[in-house]
């Protein structure tokens, strides 16, 4: 894959915006439409654009496959971890109200952590899928 100058310039210009938008969707998700899954997909779209513009080698130097695997596991762990933390605090599974002293603040913290877990998992898994397919196409 020979990277293309025009695409490189455009990617350099666009990727920061894509990432900002992704973080907006991720962390503003409790006030406007959005959430972890959407944000994760947008982040992985940025990763795909990066690979298209700069090549797989450079991208893998940034985020190796192994790191992506770890990240996707960490996201699920964060999700279930929050659920179990609710259990330990005396509530039901995923009952965020008990996380903090204040019910509403607890709900807030809970949903942000959960969505963060979802976001991390989705972003890393989709990127992982793309990377794996890209590797495959180069073998054959």
């Amino acid at each position: 894959m020979r990277p293309d100058l025009l695409l490189k310039v455009l990617a350099k210009f666009l990727i920061p915006f894509i990432l900002i938008f992704a973080f907006y969707v991720q962390f503003h998700g409790d006030f406007s439409p959005g959430g972890g899954f959407q944000a994760g997909v947008i982040i992985s779209a940025a990763a795909v654009l990066y690979v298209l513009a700069f090549g797989l080698e450079l991208a893998e130097r940034g985020i190796p496959l192994r790191a992506l695997q770890y990240l996707s596991s960490t996201g699920i762990l964060l999700y279930t971890g929050v659920g179990v933390a609710c259990l330990l605090k005396g509530g039901n599974f995923l009952d965020y109200s008990v996380l903090l002293d204040n019910d509403v603040a607890g709900q807030h913290l809970g949903i942000i952590l959960i969505e963060l877990g979802v976001g991390i998992t989705v972003a890393s898994t989709l990127t992982l899928i793309f990377f794996t397919f890209a590797h495959w196409s180069r073998h054959s």
């Binding site: 959430g35 899954f37 989705v122 989709l126 899928i129 794996t132 397919f133």
Partner: peptide
């Protein structure tokens, strides 16, 4: 939203 996630996973697995 949940079903779309499932659909994405299914299609990705299918391609693999």
């Amino acid at each position: 939203l949940t079903a779309i996630v499932v659909g994405v996973a299914t299609v990705a697995l299918g391609y693999a």
